[in-house]
Design a protein around this nucleic acid. Structure first.
Lengths: 298, 298
DNA sequence: AGCCTGCATGAGTTGAACTCATGCGGATGA
DNA sequence: TCATCCGCATGAGTTCAACTCATGCAGGCT
């Protein structure tokens, strides 16, 4: 710039005041006090070396200098607004790559994904089914991941969007049938990443001397659920992820007792990308879906 | 604006950095540190939710988003600069009303005014010859005045633009002629607003018991000079305001001794108008002329 | 005359914008 | 290969532009 511009905030205040012909209404639009606009305009007039407004009892009028200045300033701020919005819209469209476990994808995400796509037709989703935690430093094409845990991952922005009650589930064909919690002694308590809930649940049921089966370790919740459907044992399940099987009758919930899950389901991404519009849009959608579909607590 | 703009200072930093493809050069242009630009761009990228630059070893590159944003921001700041400059130029033209004493107008201002008009053809000057101090609160059409004094006028912006040596002048036809300062005893020491210099000059000349004539008080320096030309006495004169008479021989300088003037010649206007472009332009010109025509010191 | 509205202003506060100091990475030249 | 240079990044601390708060004033209206 050949010559120093006056205060940009002052020019913004000028534009709003000139359009509204009121410091008070301009202040409301800019979310500042009337006093702030008055000070801004005064400072701008000093910097410009000329009055821009005439304060008359009927209201504000632009002076000749103010009328001369307004078109350029209005254009400028309009151009800024258009340009900024275009970039934001552009950034809120394009491809979003989400990494989720196949189990979570099948049980929770895919049945709902249509609603996201309806809300954000401009965002092209790419779902990467991956049972393992994604390493964002190596897989840089992943924008966001869904993780199960406590949310304390260094360098990652994590938002918990699903809270659940947790309870045992089993096949209705399981033999001998589970009449009381004591009957669990006759069956394998399936040992997956939900295993730590057994201790709390069994204590709640008044049972001692029982623990998840040590002989069989399942790395994937989906496998554990399939074992339970096959009558091979009893699995611990989160309410929001077992609705389908309970509704279909392939699994039943033998006891009413449930406990709150300390592990949550989190939307996770690198801290530096948390504000990216696409990522924020998806995360916000997950949060809304998690709130809408809160399981009915027993 | 439908949506809050990001930081205007950030956008300004972005425009400069994008044009220069360098934070360091952008900082120099904006008169801030490289660190300030770096912080600004980082904050802007967070507010926009997208990277605008790629930092590569060869220098900066604009990302796709940055390329999308730049035209609108560049246009906007160009429009602001043009609009602001147009108003400033417009304000630096038009009519400027200057109040000066007739004496000062004749002896100093008018012989030089052509140079001002050549520099500022867009400013129409109106010279108001007024031997008295102008009261800006009553004569609101006066933009600027020239005053002789110490510059301590309340509520007024005063800039001293003429400093002078002061010395006695008289008609070459004065009788008896002035051979030594002692000969001043035979003549009237003319009493105008320059009268207070007599004490200091006479003391410097080693004379005691002499003072400006009490019987004749002249309210205007011009009158005193005319009296001196008529041989009616000896006047005290400022070097820069007596050149014409000395050159023409209508007055002579009988002694080499001179003293510095404590009173200066000031450009004066109301504080609140000091920054008006027309007024600033004229004042700056007076300062430049005062510097250029510094009298040769004896 | 009293009340209301909107702008003006001084005093004090706040936080965006800045500087300072320093670190890091990459290019270059010896 | 190493030392040096350059330019961007960053955290800590500082500065002052921008803001709020409180209040005053002028003019219009009832």
């Amino acid at each position: 710039m050949a010559r120093r511009l006056p205060s940009l905030h002052g020019l913004r205040a000028f534009e709003a005041a000139a359009r509204q012909l009121s410091f008070t209404r301009a202040a409301e639009e800019l979310n500042v006090t009337q006093s702030a606009v008055s000070h801004q305009i005064r400072a701008l007039e000093e910097q410009m070396g000329v009055a821009l407004f005439r304060r008359v009892p009927q209201g504000l009028l632009l002076t000749e200098a103010g009328q001369l200045l307004l078109p350029a300033v209005r254009d400028a701020f309009d151009r800024l607004a258009v340009g900024v919005e275009r970039v934001r819209e552009h950034e809120a469209s394009g491809t979003l790559t989400v990494s989720v476990s196949p189990y979570f994808a099948g049980r929770w995400l895919m049945p709902r994904i249509g609603r996201f796509r309806a809300l954000h037709p401009g965002i092209e989703l790419r779902i990467s089914a991956n049972p393992l935690y994604v390493d964002f430093t190596r897989e840089t094409d992943i924008d966001l991941a869904v993780r199960h845990g406590l949310g304390t991952w260094d360098g990652l922005h994590a938002v918990r969007f699903l809270d659940d009650q947790v309870f045992p589930v089993c096949s209705p064909a399981l033999r001998p049938p589970l009449e009381t919690p004591e009957d669990l002694r006759h069956h394998a308590l399936l040992n997956d990443e939900m295993h730590h809930y057994w201790d709390a649940w069994l204590a709640g049921a008044g049972l001692t001397g029982l623990a998840p089966s040590a002989g069989l370790r399942l790395t994937d919740i989906g496998l554990a659920i399939q074992c339970a459907i096959a009558g091979q044992g009893v699995a611990m399940a989160r309410a929001s992820l077992i609705e389908e099987e309970l509704a279909a009758g392939t699994l039943i919930r033998p006891f009413a007792l449930s406990i709150p899950a300390d592990f949550g389901i989190y939307a996770v991404c690198p801290e530096a990308m948390a504000d990216r519009p696409k990522i924020a849009a998806f995360r916000d959608w997950l949060i809304a879906e998690g709130r809408n579909d809160q399981p009915v607590l027993s």
